[in-house]
Structures are given as structure tokens and as C-alpha cells.
């Protein structure tokens, strides 16, 4: 978060009144906090069921941030709604801070006004893990036979990524937090900050092979703690893993067989506790299967 002395006051800044382009694009009125000037207009990234996520800058023009806004729900009683939103966002902010102190990879909190329905957190560079895995799988042989043969050989980088994810989740669980909505969309893969010396050694750039190997490099950062809870129970932890397992299988069916590496690394990182969580996971799976048979 480096900052340089900011420009003189005479510099023209984006004012609320000339963010109309952004606003039209958004189709939604901006939350009040984003109507004040910033060096670049906020960009709407996602519009979920619960809220909207904007990319903007915080404190200084060179600090990108993710601002999560939960607008009032017209169908809920206004006072109750405000209270629920505030409690939810406050909890999300506290969980992020706790994780950060404990060394679990999550975004830092920059600012919040939970009562007004927003929190601003560190922007994580890179892409959601979902996107990266699909990019990787997209480059794999389409033919099933060939793929099987190739699997054993060169799924190495993906296996390594699965292990990093497992370790990150173990770290999260160890702090007494369960995520509540683990998917490969709620994890970012932040590319490593490269040393410039490497590229100067290779004036011809990187080979296709190398570029491919680099695709899955990076640091796994867990995001979106909107449904997180405090829990130390095997059951809740196993449910967290089960939700991810199901989401993973439907998002990346071609890599489903690699999920075991994630679980193995979770267990390795978490030690004894990990063993009993994985044991519980079998019960949770069983119940899940029964439920889907009935339903």
C-alpha cells in the first residue's frame, strides 16, 4: 500500500456528477459512499443476490479495493433489515481481521460502515481459482483416453494448487472459522510478484510450456465471508469441505478425481483434527446422498 504525495488540489477529479457513464452502466444508484469523488470511477464487478461488489480505490488512487454493498431489502422491515445487514457485515469484517492476524490468506479490511451497508477490503490481483482451473483444463486433451494418459504425467501444477487450497482451508478452520460458502469462485489465485531479473535473461520471452506451468502459480486467497460462522465442530468443518466438494465436482467435472489431493493436504496441515474432520466428511456425504435420493 505505497502512497505517493498526492497531486495538487487544482487537479480535476471525477465528481459524482460526471460518473453518469458509470452510473448508467450500473443501472443501480451507487451507494452514498461511492458518490463522492475518486480518481477513477467505481466499476460494478458482480451483482449477487445479497449485494453488489464494486472495484474502486481507497485512501489513495493507487490502492485498489473491493467494496461490498448490501442495499436495503424492500421486502423486509426497514429497521430489522438495517439491523441484520449491519450485524452481518460487522461479523464479516471481524472474521477477516481475525484471519489476517492468524496468517490465514484473506483480504485486509480498509474501512467499513456496516450501518450504511458497506465494507471496503483489499483488492486481490489475479483471478478466481475457478477461472484459472478452467483455463488450465481448457488446454488439456479433449479426448478422454488421451486425457487419462496425460493425467498421470502432467497434472502436477493442478495437484499442487489443490494442495495449496487444502492448506489454506485448514488454516481457516484452525482459527475457529467456517466459511459457509466455499467454492472455487470464492478463492482468488494471486500471481507471484515476479523478479525482473528473470525476464531479462530470456529476451525471447517464455515458451508455451513454461507459460502453461505458470498458469496455476500463485497464492490462494479466500474471499467472500458473507456466510461465515464461528465454529470448531467437526460437523461444521466437514460441511464446509462437502460444500466445496460438490461445487468443485459440478464446476470442474474433469478434475473431480483430483479433489482427494485437497483433502489429503487439509489433513496434513490440520493434523489430528483433520483426521476426525475427514472422518465426519464421510457421514456428511452419506447424508447428502440420502437426501438427494429422497428429494
Amino acid at each position: 500500500m505505497d502512497t505517493s504525495p498526492s497531486s495538487p488540489p487544482t487537479k480535476k477529479r471525477k465528481m459524482a456528477t460526471d460518473t453518469t457513464a458509470a452510473e448508467q452502466e450500473h443501472q443501480f444508484p451507487l451507494p452514498a459512499i461511492l458518490t463522492h469523488p475518486s480518481a477513477t470511477p467505481p466499476i460494478l464487478i458482480t451483482q449477487g443476490a445479497e449485494g453488489r461488489l464494486y472495484k474502486t480505490t481507497f485512501f489513495s488512487p493507487n490502492i485498489p479495493c473491493a467494496l461490498k454493498y448490501r442495499p436495503p431489502k424492500p421486502y423486509r422491515h426497514p429497521i430489522l433489515d438495517a439491523r441484520l445487514t449491519k450485524a452481518r457485515l460487522a461479523f464479516e469484517a471481524k472474521v477477516l481481521e481475525r484471519c489476517r492476524r492468524e496468517g490465514v490468506p484473506v483480504p485486509a479490511v480498509y474501512a467499513q460502515n456496516a450501518a450504511a451497508g458497506w465494507i471496503a477490503v483489499e483488492w486481490i490481483e489475479g483471478a478466481p481459482v475457478r477461472v484459472k482451473i478452467n483455463e488450465w483444463l481448457g488446454q488439456r486433451p479433449k479426448n478422454e483416453e488421451e486425457e487419462k494418459a496425460a493425467d498421470a504425467k502432467d497434472q502436477g501444477p493442478l495437484v499442487e494448487l489443490m494442495k495449496r487450497i487444502g492448506a489454506a482451508i485448514a488454516g481457516l478452520h484452525r482459527t475457529g472459522v467456517v466459511h459457509g460458502d466455499l467454492t472455487t469462485s470464492n478463492m482468488m489465485l494471486r500471481p507471484p510478484t515476479r523478479k525482473t531479473t528473470r525476464t531479462t535473461e530470456q529476451p525471447n520471452g517464455v515458451s508455451e510450456e513454461e507459460a502453461k506451468a505458470k498458469l496455476l502459480e500463485g497464492y490462494v486467497v479466500i474471499i467472500d465471508f458473507g456466510l461465515a460462522n464461528q465454529s470448531q465442530s467437526d460437523e461444521d468443518r466437514a460441511t464446509d469441505l462437502y460444500v466445496l466438494e460438490r461445487a468443485f465436482a459440478s464446476t470442474h467435472p474433469r478434475a473431480e478425481n483430483l479433489f482427494e489431493h485437497l483433502l489429503e493436504s487439509y489433513k496434513q496441515t490440520f493434523g489430528k483434527k483433520g483426521v476426525s474432520v475427514l472422518h465426519k466428511l464421510e457421514d456428511v456425504r452419506m447424508r447428502g446422498r440420502k437426501r438427494s435420493m429422497i428429494g
Partner: peptide, 17 residues
């Protein structure tokens, strides 16, 4: 230093929650 700055900023942001 960066990590500590992140924690300091979070501490400021979260006071009173």
C-alpha cells in the same frame, strides 16, 4: 511492514464493531 500496515488499518476500521 506491509502486513503490519494492513493490520493497523483494519484495527482503525473495525474499532467499535
Amino acid at each position: 511492514r506491509r502486513e503490519m500496515e494492513g493490520l493497523v488499518v483494519s484495527g482503525i476500521a473495525l474499532r467499535g464493531l
